[in-house]
Design a protein around this nucleic acid. Structure first.
Lengths: 119, 119
DNA sequence: TTTTGTGCAAACTATTTGCAAACCG
DNA sequence: CGGTTTGCAAATAGTTTGCACAAAA
């Protein structure tokens, strides 16, 4: 664990926001101005590979990173891209996974968040 | 509807495969060698916008295009990326969507397909 | 004949990588 | 020390865009 990696990790764990690499880079630079963008990407990759955080691919937008490592669905605003964690009801996907050796899932629900609807 | 757009559309409708833009480009060029890659992307975008086909974003891989326009889940092989259409059981997501103005969903299930498991 | 689309090439965005120097255990 | 990681810059992959010309409505 280098200082850089710890910093990236801390930023993700500090808040429930689902930040992009760029946002993490900006926040980290406030603390360590010499930090390179490539280092952020490399460490995000390592943290994901080691299962300490999760990567959340977004349609037509940069990926976001999630401090919650257990699989769960996401509710995503179509307008601003804000992401909210949902809880997966027990056995919800069973009808689909039954008889298949499913190794994981990715469930995204879309809506327009209250803030965006207000405009 | 130009000849180019028709061609792109026909290729997608001709088979249940979920092809990438590049694969579509290659197939189309066999028929119309002058076709430009940019034209394929432009037409895919238009067909998606008009709801005639669907775009399927893939993790760490180029997007694929689906001739089936009704929303449905996908079963994706982790190794080779092959995509299979699934049928969404009636009301499966209701526990998650209840009380929320959900506009759409994206559900991907992952597995290792028989062909890949055989190796 | 006005709009819409094409081919080409250059641009762009998000991300990855090669490398020499710096760091960590 | 010896492998890992860094900062930097250049490279990459997938996709988008500006433009002059051509095809469609």
């Amino acid at each position: 664990m280098t200082r850089q990696r710890q910093l990236v990790y801390n930023i993700i764990m500090a808040a429930p926001e689902h930040r992009t690499a760029e946002e993490i880079y900006d926040l980290a630079r406030a603390e360590m101005p010499s930090l390179a963008r490539g280092t952020v990407y490399r460490n995000l990759g390592i943290l994901v590979r080691d299962g300490r955080i999760r990567k959340l691919e977004m349609p037509d937008a940069p990926a976001r990173y999630d401090r919650e490592r257990r699989p769960h669905p996401h509710l995503i605003c179509e307008k601003c891209g804000k992401v909210e964690d949902l809880t997966m009801p027990e056995g919800l996907l069973s009808p689909l996974t039954a008889g298949r050796a499913v190794t994981g899932y990715d469930l995204k629900l879309y809506h327009v968040c209250p803030a965006c609807r207000a405009r």
